[in-house]
Computed example of a mutant assay.
Amino acid sequence: MRILPTLLATLSLGASLAAPAAASVGTAAAQTTVVIEDFRFVPRSVTVNAGDSVRWINNDNADHTTTSDGPGWDSGELPPGSSFTHTFTTQGTFTYHCSIHPDMTGSVTVQ
């Protein structure tokens, strides 16, 4: 009669091993690119999801910054060919400018 409990325990273990694992469902964070060229941000406005990042690439022939108008981020001076990335975790609209050329402006809307 010891065979029956052992057989049942083996079948139970086999069934739990054969059960598929629960898949984790999530969305991978995305990255949006803003190009700095001709003394402007292109595109000037972008929309991203919370958790996504924006990468600014300086394709101009002068140094620029991407500096939040409020608390947030400041890339510091970006020489031509360099880039800066910021991850947005809070929903809202965030305006920014180039601190070297204040007439250069843009915005990031986070959903």
Rank of each mutant, 00 (worst) to 15 (best):
M1D: 13
M1C: 10
R2I: 11
I3A: 09
L4H: 05
P5Q: 07
T6M: 13
T6H: 10
T6W: 12
L7G: 02
L8Q: 08
L8T: 05
A9R: 01
T10W: 10
L11N: 02
S12T: 14
S12F: 14
A15V: 12
S16P: 01
S16G: 00
L17E: 03
L17S: 06
A18S: 11
A19P: 02
A19Q: 13
A21T: 10
A21C: 06
A21Y: 02
A22W: 09
A23H: 00
V25M: 09
V25D: 07
V25G: 00
T27Y: 06
A30K: 14
Q31V: 15
Q31Y: 04
T33A: 09
T33V: 15
V34E: 08
V35A: 11
F39Q: 14
F39K: 12
F39P: 00
R40S: 15
R40K: 15
F41R: 00
F41I: 02
V42L: 14
P43Y: 05
R44T: 14
S45K: 13
T47Y: 01
V48G: 04
V48T: 08
N49A: 13
N49M: 11
N49F: 00
A50N: 10
A50W: 07
A50L: 06
G51S: 05
D52R: 05
V54D: 07
R55L: 13
R55D: 03
W56Q: 03
W56L: 01
N59F: 08
N59A: 13
N59V: 06
N59W: 00
A62H: 15
A62P: 01
A62Y: 13
D63I: 11
D63W: 15
T65Y: 05
T65A: 05
T66M: 14
T66E: 12
T67R: 14
T67Q: 15
S68A: 15
D69Y: 02
P71R: 12
P71Q: 12
G72Y: 00
W73I: 00
W73M: 02
W73R: 07
S75V: 08
G76D: 03
G76M: 03
P79Q: 10
P80A: 03
G81S: 09
S82K: 01
S83L: 00
F84M: 01
T85G: 05
T85A: 06
T87D: 04
T87G: 07
F88G: 04
T89K: 07
T90K: 12
Q91I: 03
G92V: 04
G92K: 01
T93P: 04
F94M: 05
T95M: 11
T95Y: 12
Y96E: 13
Y96H: 15
H97I: 01
C98D: 14
C98R: 02
C98F: 07
S99R: 15
I100M: 08
I100D: 01
I100Y: 07
H101M: 15
P102H: 07
M104F: 09
T105C: 00
T105Y: 06
V108K: 03
V108S: 09
T109V: 09
T109E: 10
V110P: 09
Q111E: 11
